[in-house]
């Protein structure tokens, strides 16, 4: 059974930094949202937590593409994570969570697991 989810509004277009990431706080914890205006789609969201250090830093990495795959490089130990799949290019046994992301008017929304309280309220 698919867990219940909801589209949480996390920030607005003005908060985004082109070609770079920002961090937002969600029900599921910290998430990094990247805006790459020269790609289609232009928005990507992955966990903000670097699995190699446990620190919340991925939004502060440098973005780019390697062999066509959009990636972010961890600012701590420089591993690359695919923005499409979350898989670490240097060690494919490691993967960070990815989140569906959506532009709703001026709002950026992420699909996150709805927790108990929220789902009752909803």
């Amino acid at each position: 059974m698919k867990p219940r989810t909801r589209w949480e509004a996390v920030c607005t277009v003005d908060d985004l930094v082109p070609e770079s990431g920002i961090a937002v706080w969600t029900e599921e914890g910290p998430v990094a949202v990247f805006y790459l205006p020269h790609r289609l789609p232009a928005l990507f969201a992955i966990s903000h937590t670097d699995p190699f250090s446990g620190a919340n830093v991925l939004a502060r990495g440098i973005t780019g593409d390697l062999k066509g795959e959009p990636v972010v490089a961890s600012p701590l130990y420089k591993q690359h994570f695919s923005l499409l799949t979350g898989v670490c290019l240097e060690d494919d046994t490691v993967r960070v969570k990815t989140y569906p992301v959506l532009l709703d008017g001026n709002q950026i929304r992420l699909e996150v697991r709805a927790n108990q309280r929220e789902s009752i309220a909803a």
Binding site: V10, C11, D15, V17, I22, A23, V24, W25, G29, P30, T49, G54, A55, N56
Partner: peptide
């Protein structure tokens, strides 16, 4: 503005 830890939660501190 670039220095906000979480752009949507100014008072949230880094949990780890």
């Amino acid at each position: 503005k670039r220095f906000r830890e979480f752009v949507n939660a100014p008072s949230q501190c880094d949990p780890v």
